[in-house]
């Protein structure tokens, strides 16, 4: 039961979207963390066979990603998806079922089961164009599960879900992760914190870190500081270090920031969280993007 990604590289023109990415995934939930343009979606699409790596290969139990057998075990929820107009939720599920090779009788049963699971049972006969963003997202999750996939790839699955739905979704994913490989990418750091067994950190097309939550955070252990300073100092500091949080307090400024060394006199260490790490890694990148 292993998904092997072996030195996978992808280029768009001169830009390297994925740079020799290698890792092996087993049953469980993996969170893919990275800034926009870090190569997350590119990697995921290659894992679904949607685009071919320039070099390297991807296989599941020896079955290459380009084979029909691989796709048979795959469930994919892309970041954005459309739908044929006039389709109801039911129509949509039945259509995808046919594409997944599921016979009609079973498709009907499976559709009912999955729509219930994502709380769309009552909307089964309603047209998708009447759906809210969150409802559409839930439908997307349902279709990914139609063929009981061994590999589930979800690109920004919690986008558009309200907090209650997000909690429900987390529970669902946690339950499903026991029997299959789930890879999800999200900007919402708290999602990854709660449900991923392993976190993969991607930056500029490279896989820079892989491990459990604690292992990942250990990178910035002792590097998260909190201090209260004057606004002048605050301005100086914000130019030097990634600022995670800031607020005004009686004329002074409270800062939470990441720094290798102690940034100022009265700074104190704070417990590092995944969000801190995200900013630590990706703050430079956003600065670069803005410069361009």
């Amino acid at each position: 039961m292993e998904l092997k990604i072996d030195r996978v590289t992808k280029k768009y023109g001169s830009k390297i979207a994925c740079d020799r990415i290698s890792t092996t995934l087993h049953n469980g939930v993996y969170g893919l963390l990275g800034a926009n343009g870090a190569g997350k979606t590119t990697l995921m699409r290659m894992m679904c066979g949607l685009s071919k790596p320039a070099s390297g290969n991807i296989s599941y139990n020896g079955i290459d990603v380009s084979q029909e057998e691989y796709r048979d075990m795959l469930g994919y929820l892309p970041q954005n998806f459309g739908y044929y107009p006039e389709f109801t939720a039911q129509d949509f599920m039945m259509y995808i079922s046919a594409l997944k090779g599921i016979p009609k009788s079973r498709a009907k049963a499976k559709t009912a089961e999955l729509l219930e699971m994502v709380s769309l049972k009552n909307e089964a006969r309603k047209k998708i164009k009447t759906f809210s963003g969150g409802m559409k997202q839930r439908l997307g999750i349902a279709q990914a599960m139609l063929n009981d996939p061994q590999i589930l790839i979800l690109d920004e699955p919690t986008a558009g879900l309200d907090p209650k739905e997000r909690v429900k979704f987390r529970n669902l994913i946690s339950r499903m992760g026991a029997d299959r490989i789930i890879l999800l990418s999200t900007h919402i750091v708290s999602d990854i914190e709660h449900i991923a067994n392993t976190i993969l950190v991607m930056r500029s097309g490279q896989l820079i870190h892989e491990g459990s939550l604690d292992e990942i955070i250990s990178v910035i252990d002792g590097k998260v500081w909190e201090c209260i300073v004057s606004s002048k100092t605050a301005d100086e500091l914000s130019l030097k270090y990634p600022i995670i949080n800031t607020r005004n307090e009686n004329g002074s400024v409270f800062l939470r920031l990441v720094s290798d060394e102690k940034p100022c006199e009265n700074a104190e260490n704070a417990q590092a969280t995944l969000e801190d790490l995200y900013l630590y890694y990706f703050n430079e990148e956003t600065a670069e993007d803005q410069a361009i």
Partner: peptide, 18 residues
């Protein structure tokens, strides 16, 4: 070309019958 026109291509491409 319906798949492209209506943005269904991505989901369809990941299916058994791609």
């Amino acid at each position: 070309s319906r798949s492209d026109i209506f943005g269904m291509s991505e989901i369809e491409a990941g299916c058994r019958y791609s």
